[in-house]
């Protein structure tokens, strides 16, 4: 025992291989693998290309956009007005106010969704509620209904309640329509938590509410954050409902403002400004996603074990 240790210490420094050898099963050429790789790379390349085009076009003049779609921008830069399109979009589309409204609306809605969905998911998976399985499936059905199909009845109903052209009304709709998916996502998380912790908490004398708040919620934090981010991204980009339910500039969300700006800008052939407007709406979520991608992916697959 000791002699091996001495040898190792005194002997030449051993260098590990630069790339660990793969398992025998993974070696060799497989057509399926090659095809898969090709598809993945193609998809990635296409997305990167679109993104590149979007970012570049936001700095170009309309002529550049149409004649040299993949070249680097030059027209505005040469004139010392590199950010002219972004400024144009920001000033003319009413993005300033829309940005604040969207941030607040998305944040409040996402938090409200998770606050409602988490206890619901907890009760469905953990409290042994009678008929919990059926109820979970019932909630899941909500995911299967495309919200586009209920827009009209929804509008009529909201109009009755005087909640159209009203941010609070939109908030209610966002929360209601996002609950099925979020509850379903969170049931997966809560189900994957070990039973014994709850039993330990019960023996320690914690009430179900206390167990939920001090034991289960902290443990499901990863899932809650995932749910929060997915909802935030979805609501940030949501356009159809905001078009249907909002018709006053003062209430516009970013997506809604962009839609209004779209007609105005294309009428004036302000394509540079239009693309810049799109970039302003899209990029914050892209940054958020890049920063949190790892977290989201672990979150989405976490319930899949066990």
């Amino acid at each position: 025992m000791t002699s091996t240790v001495d040898e190792r210490l005194g002997g030449p420094v051993r260098k590990p291989p630069r790339k660990p050898k793969p398992a025998p099963t993974a070696r060799g050429f497989s057509p399926l693998r090659a095809l898969g790789m090709a598809v993945v790379w193609l998809f990635t390349a296409l997305n990167v290309l679109v993104l590149y085009w979007l970012v570049m076009a936001a700095f170009k003049s309309p002529i550049e956009i149409f004649t040299k779609p993949f070249a680097l921008p030059s027209y505005w830069i040469e004139r010392g007005q590199a950010f002219r399109n972004l400024a144009y979009a920001w000033n003319n589309a009413g993005f300033g106010r829309a940005f604040v409204i969207t941030v607040v609306l998305v944040a409040v809605s996402s938090v409200a969704i998770v606050l409602l969905a988490a206890p619901a998911a907890y009760a469905l998976t953990r409290l042994g509620v009678r008929g919990a399985n059926g109820l979970t499936n019932f909630v899941a059905i909500g995911m299967g209904i495309p919200f586009q199909t209920v827009v009209i009845p929804l509008f009529i109903g909201m109009a009755e309640l005087d909640l159209t052209n009203n941010l609070f009304g939109l908030f209610l709709i966002y929360v209601a329509l996002s609950l099925p998916f979020t509850v379903f996502l969170l049931t997966g998380f809560f189900r994957s938590l070990p039973d014994e912790l709850e039993e330990a908490a019960a023996i320690d004398g914690a009430s179900p509410a206390r167990t939920f708040f001090t034991i289960m919620l902290p443990l499901a934090r990863g899932g809650l954050i995932t749910a929060l981010i997915l909802n935030a991204i979805g609501l940030w980009n949501e356009t159809l409902l905001s078009i249907v339910f909002l018709n006053e500039n003062a209430n516009f969300t970013l997506a809604r403002a962009l839609f209004a700006f779209n007609s105005a800008a294309s009428y004036q052939s302000e394509y540079g400004g239009l693309v810049a407007g799109v970039a302003i709406v899209v990029l914050p979520m892209l940054v958020l996603y890049v920063l949190l991608a790892r977290r989201i992916i672990t979150g989405l697959t976490l319930g899949a074990g066990k």
Binding site: E199, A202, I203, D204, I215, P218, L219
Partner: peptide
């Protein structure tokens, strides 16, 4: 359970993973 005045040691210990050892012991 909480009205029985019993303590239990579980096979997998069931320690609260987000609490320190001190908090685990002092939870009750």
């Amino acid at each position: 359970p909480k009205e029985r005045d019993i303590a239990m040691v579980f096979q997998n210990y069931a320690l609260y993973p987000h609490m320190t050892v001190g908090e685990n012991i002092g939870f009750h």
